[in-house]
C-alpha cells in the first residue's frame, strides 16, 4: 500500500539524512522505526507526507506517487495520511473539539472552517472518536488545560478523523511517563487494528516497540539495517543499530514485562 523507492533526502548543509531507502508497508501493518537520534527516523516520516521535501526517489501511496504531486494534489493526498506528533503539536489555544475537527480541514472549505461550521457528520465522528479515547467530557476544554496523555489522545483523534489509510507517528511517547506511554501505544495499535490501518511509528524506546508491533525497521545513518519481527532483535542487531552497549538488560526487561502482563 505504501512503497518507498530509493527515497533520499540531502539537506542544504550536505548532510544525507536518508540514503536511498526502499520500504514496503502492506495494508493494516503496524511497524516501528527504531534507531539512534539523527538516524533519519523523523525525516523519513516527514518525507512521506512531504513536510520535508525529499530530494530523490519516490513514495507511492496506493497508485499515487506522492513525491511528484503539485501543492493542491498533495493536500488531497495528505488527507489520507494522519500524523501524530512528538509533544502532541496540538494548537494549544483552541478547544479540544476544534483540534479534533482541524483534522477535517482538508475536506471543508475556508469559510466553513473560519465560521467553525463543520458538517454534522464530522461533528458526530469527532464526538465518537473522543468517546472512544475517553475524552468526551473534555470536548470544550482548551487544549492547554489537558495532561500530556490526554493531549496525545486528542492528537490521535485529529489524525483518525481524517479517515486516513496510513498513520505516520513521530515519537508518540517522547514526553510521557512509562505507564501513559504504554497506554498510548496500546491505543494506537488497537485503533489501527479496528480500522485496518497501516502505521509507521517512530520510537526510540526499543522495549516499547517490541511489546506492541509486528514488524521493526532499524535505521542507522539514513539506511535500513534491520527489517524483521520484534523477537529477531538480538543484542547483535541492536549493536549494529545503536553501537556497543550491554543489550541483555533491555531485552530481558521486555520478557519480564510480557510475563507480568501474561499473569495479570
Amino acid at each position: 500500500m505504501l512503497r518507498l523507492e530509493k527515497l533520499t533526502k540531502t539537506y542544504k548543509t550536505g548532510d544525507q539524512a536518508l540514503k536511498q531507502v526502499d520500504l514496503e508497508v502492506p495494508q493494516g501493518q503496524v511497524l516501528a522505526l527504531i534507531g539512534p537520534s539523527g538516524a533519519g527516523k523523523s525525516t523519513l516520516i516527514r518525507c512521506i507526507n512531504r513536510l520535508v521535501e525529499p530530494t530523490g526517489g519516490a513514495a507511492w501511496l496506493g497508485g499515487v506517487n506522492l513525491t511528484a504531486l503539485g501543492q493542491r494534489a498533495l493536500r488531497r493526498e495528505r488527507r489520507r495520511m494522519g500524523m501524530i506528533f512528538q509533544e502532541y503539536a496540538l494548537v494549544e489555544r483552541l478547544t479540544v473539539m476544534e483540534n479534533v475537527l482541524s483534522g477535517r480541514l482538508g475536506y471543508v472549505g475556508f469559510w466553513r472552517s473560519f465560521l467553525r461550521r463543520f458538517p454534522q457528520s464530522d461533528v458526530d465522528e469527532a464526538y465518537r472518536l473522543l468517546d472512544r479515547v475517553g475524552l468526551l467530557h473534555m470536548a470544550d476544554k482548551r487544549a492547554d488545560e489537558l495532561s500530556g496523555g490526554q493531549r496525545q489522545r486528542v492528537g490521535i483523534c485529529r489524525a483518525l478523523i481524517q479517515n486516513p489509510a496510513l498513520l505516520l507517528v513521530d515519537e508518540p511517547t517522547a514526553s510521557l511517563d512509562p505507564k501513559t506511554s504504554r497506554q498510548i501505544m496500546r491505543l494506537i495499535v488497537e485503533l489501527c487494528r479496528e480500522r485496518d490501518l497501516a502505521a509507521i511509528i517512530n520510537i526510540h524506546d526499543v522495549a516499547l516497540a517490541q511489546m506492541f508491533v509486528m514488524r521493526v525497521i532499524g535505521l542507522e545513518l539514513g539506511r535500513i539495517v534491520f527489517d524483521g519481527a520484534p523477537d529477531a532483535l538480538t543484542p547483535d542487531v541492536l549493536t549494529q543499530i545503536y553501537g556497543e552497549e550491554d543489550w541483555e538488560a533491555t531485552i530481558q526487561t521486555v520478557e519480564e514485562e510480557e510475563e507480568e502482563a501474561g499473569t495479570a
Partner: peptide, 13 residues
C-alpha cells in the same frame, strides 16, 4: 453521554 451528543450541533464555546 455520547448518544445525547450525536446529531447535536457543535458551537465553539
Amino acid at each position: 453521554e455520547l448518544d445525547t451528543l450525536i446529531g447535536t450541533r457543535w458551537k465553539k464555546p
